[in-house]
Amino acid sequence: MSHALVIGEALVDIVRDAAGEVTEHPGGSPANVALGLARLGRHAQLATWFGRDERGRAVHDHLRASDVHLVPGSDDAERTSTAEAQLDADGAATYTFDLLWNVPEVHLDDDLAVLHVGSIGATLRPGADAVAEIALAARDHATISYDVNARPSIMGEPVDAESLIERVASRSDVIKVSDEDFRWLYSHLDPLDAAREWAQQGPAVVVVTQADQGSTAFTSSGLEVHVPAPAVTVVDTVGAGDSYMSGLIDALWTAKLLGASRREKLHAISEDDLRTAMRWAARIAAITVSRPGADPPTRHELEPTS
């Protein structure tokens, strides 16, 4: 059975809304991507790092309830990491982190369709170095996807993070990056110009998410595709980009464009296939922002009702 392997942080989001009410939800960007893929019916493995404490048990139960398969050793951390998310009046979140990160041993084989990495797990050492090495090794087996998902409070100054982010980007086939990520990383460049440059440096597809302005994709073959965001009432934005990422991977999987043997086809993706994938991803993200926390939809929720 072909499967996805996701490597990165799983943690607990401590969410403070504009009124000061506090709730806790299992989260972490890569963990949310694995959860989203599993809810879409994909076989998703997650290599992560959390503890066997109360919060760790909540993370474990949350992932297993959606049939995410945890790589052995993922619960060997001293404690479970947290991200405190402060919501503003519009539901947008800013984060403060207490994070531990390392990578348990993973297995790569030709049944691997896609390796997904991202966010803090791809930039916080010592785990980041292992992530970069695994991404390079996995290219012989799978498509590599990467969500930059920059977190300045953890990643430091852009000059400190740039080489780490570009190292993973250069090894990736599909990249999702927000316009805010690019503005932070390259303050001298327009985000879309930065994406055009990245798309000519190795990746097949670079997608820039632009909040309520939708998303714009650039390909190595020179395609540029924009898809507007669906109209939606936002409850909060926690997990929105992660849901978009899992939807994008799922759609490329459906189009039979994942796997090392299909890398050339991915580089030659048609405008129709790319637009379809972006619309699917945007629809999934819209459902996630319409309800609290990182709660992506199942495939059943997305199927048309008779």
Rank of each mutant, 00 (worst) to 15 (best):
residue 214 G to F: 03
residue 174 V to D: 01
residue 108 L to W: 01
residue 289 V to I: 09
residue 304 P to V: 14
residue 183 R to P: 01
residue 149 N to T: 12
residue 142 A to W: 00
residue 281 A to N: 06
residue 45 Q to K: 13
residue 22 V to K: 07
residue 251 A to Q: 09
residue 119 S to M: 07
residue 49 W to F: 15
residue 153 S to P: 03
residue 306 S to Y: 14
residue 138 A to Q: 09
residue 66 S to P: 09
residue 290 S to C: 01
residue 246 S to K: 04
residue 104 P to R: 00
residue 173 D to W: 10
residue 118 G to K: 06
residue 20 G to F: 06
residue 147 D to F: 03
residue 259 G to S: 00
residue 251 A to W: 00
residue 166 E to V: 02
residue 74 S to A: 05
residue 67 D to V: 14
residue 92 A to W: 15
residue 296 P to V: 06
residue 120 I to L: 14
residue 122 A to K: 08
residue 302 L to R: 00
residue 103 V to N: 02
residue 126 P to K: 10
residue 216 T to V: 11
residue 66 S to N: 13
residue 162 E to I: 11
residue 138 A to E: 05
residue 111 D to Q: 13
residue 53 D to H: 02
residue 236 D to P: 00
residue 158 P to H: 03
residue 275 R to P: 07
residue 178 S to L: 09
residue 69 H to L: 13
residue 250 D to L: 02
residue 82 T to Q: 11
residue 118 G to W: 07
residue 207 V to S: 00
residue 271 E to L: 08
residue 116 H to I: 13
residue 151 R to S: 08
residue 228 P to V: 08
residue 25 H to N: 13
residue 154 I to K: 03
residue 127 G to S: 11
residue 269 I to W: 06
residue 87 L to F: 05
residue 291 R to C: 04
residue 93 A to I: 00
residue 111 D to V: 08
residue 277 A to P: 02
residue 281 A to K: 02
residue 11 L to Y: 01
residue 245 M to G: 04
residue 65 A to E: 12
residue 129 D to W: 14
residue 158 P to L: 01
residue 19 A to G: 08
residue 254 T to G: 11
residue 48 T to V: 13
residue 114 V to G: 04
residue 163 S to F: 11
residue 169 A to D: 04
residue 272 D to Y: 12
residue 235 V to G: 03
residue 73 G to D: 03
residue 149 N to V: 10
residue 236 D to R: 05
residue 188 H to D: 13
residue 264 E to K: 15
residue 235 V to N: 07
residue 243 S to P: 05
residue 76 D to W: 14
residue 286 A to S: 09
residue 208 V to G: 07
residue 7 I to N: 01
residue 129 D to I: 09
residue 280 W to P: 08
residue 1 M to P: 02
residue 52 R to I: 09
residue 52 R to Y: 10
residue 262 R to T: 10
residue 150 A to S: 11
residue 72 P to R: 06
residue 243 S to M: 05
residue 122 A to F: 08
residue 226 H to S: 13
residue 280 W to L: 14
residue 15 V to F: 05
residue 127 G to L: 10
residue 57 R to G: 15
residue 4 A to I: 03
residue 222 G to A: 03
residue 189 L to N: 09
residue 132 A to W: 08
residue 280 W to C: 15
residue 75 D to T: 15
residue 88 D to T: 12
residue 100 L to W: 08
residue 139 R to L: 08
residue 175 I to E: 00
residue 77 A to N: 04
residue 120 I to H: 03
residue 290 S to V: 03
residue 169 A to M: 10
residue 184 W to F: 10
residue 51 G to N: 12
residue 216 T to A: 05
residue 253 W to S: 01
